[in-house]
């Protein structure tokens, strides 16, 4: 199956995106599995003008948006869920940094979080990020601008919070 290896090459990035979007490991894993299933079933209907990577991200994003509307949040405390995700690394410092960044992302509106994740973390060009979010490029840029303004503020405040925690 030719599509199998092509899809598999993107699965880990899809999972990272899903983890950062949901901040919930179980939800994220279900989302990734559903994405692979849908990609397989729609393989032949794929738009040829859109490369595979943004196509897969668009499927995941659409599934997430539709699931998000009827989601019942798991009864876990948000912090526990973040710890669960951060446990991916053995190094304490890496874990703390990962947690902090996830917390910062948590404080962004969903649209802005998605924009900054696709561009800054997944490295998609604006045009592809726009295709994933199904909005014009200008909208992606204004979301990025607003996301960055908030993140800059948080990063500034975050340094002091970090110091307090260490002390």
């Amino acid at each position: 199956m030719e599509e199998a290896s092509e899809i598999e090459a993107h699965v880990l990035a899809l999972r990272r995106f899903a983890l950062a979007l949901t901040r919930d490991r179980d939800l994220a894993d279900d989302l990734v599995q559903d994405t692979i299933e849908r990609a397989l079933s729609r393989w032949r209907l794929r738009r040829r003008d859109l490369p595979l990577r943004p196509w897969l991200f668009a499927i995941l994003r659409n599934l997430h948006v539709s699931a998000w509307r009827r989601r019942v949040r798991s009864p876990f405390v948000a912090g526990d869920r973040l710890d669960e995700i951060a446990a991916v690394s053995d190094a304490v410092e890496t874990r703390i940094e990962l947690r902090q960044v996830l917390e910062m992302l948590e404080n962004l509106p969903e649209d802005q979080r998605m924009a900054i994740l696709l561009v800054a973390v997944e490295g998609l060009p604006y045009a592809q990020a726009a295709a994933v979010m199904d909005v014009p490029v200008g909208t992606v840029m204004s979301r990025l601008g607003r996301a960055r303004a908030r993140l800059r503020e948080m990063a500034g405040a975050g340094t002091t919070a970090k110091l307090r925690r260490v002390v």
């Binding site: 290896s5 598999e8 699965v11 999972r15 894993d29 599995q33 397989l40 991916v88």
Partner: peptide
């Protein structure tokens, strides 16, 4: 910070 999330081995359930 998010790089480690995509640096794990591929979980078996995601094998196509």
């Amino acid at each position: 910070a998010l790089a480690p999330l995509a640096e794990t081995s591929l979980p078996a359930r995601f094998r196509v």
